[in-house]
């Protein structure tokens, strides 16, 4: 497509001159190609902003851990507090206004960050639960997940490494 656009630009000079019949040559086809190119660039850029977030656990987690979306909602909503083997679930998250946290809420849990915060507050201030531990960065999040038994959190693709494992969401 790039070569076609360049060829079109060669054919259609930047200064439009009237031809012998008094009409300005139409460059509609080249203009259409430029618009298509712009649209492609626009949407490719838009796609790059919507990074994918992965649910992440400490490496070595048993394969029987629940991975359904509604169960993950219960885990990150701090209502389900133990793994199937009875060990404690340690939930780590980023701040409410963090971009990755927002992506995680919308992509994985399909809720908004303020709804999650409201759910945590309801538990904390009624004495029926605790809030997750809030960390400052994805690097810190990855380190804590890798070093804490029973830990679960989330990371973007670029922050994944061998110290953590991805939990696929059904």
């Amino acid at each position: 497509m790039g070569k076609s656009i360049l060829k079109g630009l060669e054919v259609c000079p930047p200064v439009m001159k009237q031809n012998k019949s008094g009409q300005i040559p139409c460059c509609g086809g080249n203009f259409f190609a430029i618009c298509i190119c712009c649209l492609v660039l626009f949407f490719s850029n838009y796609t790059a902003q919507a990074e994918e977030v992965f649910v992440t656990v400490k490496r070595g987690m048993p394969t029987t851990v629940p991975t359904s979306r509604y169960v993950l909602s219960a885990i990150f909503g701090m209502r389900l507090t133990t793994w199937p083997d009875g060990s404690a679930i340690r939930v780590f998250v980023l701040p409410d206004d963090n971009h990755t946290h927002s992506l995680f809420c919308k992509q994985i849990l399909q809720i908004f960050p303020h709804q999650l915060r409201t759910a945590w507050d309801r538990l904390v201030y009624s004495g029926t639960g605790q809030a997750p531990e809030v960390l400052g960065s994805e690097l810190e999040l990855r380190t804590r997940i890798a070093n804490t038994p029973g830990a679960i959190g989330y990371l973007t693709k670029e922050n994944l490494d061998e110290s953590v494992a991805i939990l696929p969401v059904k």
Binding site: T81, G86, I89, V124, G127, Q130
Partner: peptide, 18 residues
């Protein structure tokens, strides 16, 4: 004004107070 605390001595046992 309020202050509350919670403690999980066991994964399924919680003590909390406000």
């Amino acid at each position: 004004l309020g202050i509350n605390g919670s403690w999980l001595p066991l994964p399924n046992l919680r003590l909390s107070m406000q």
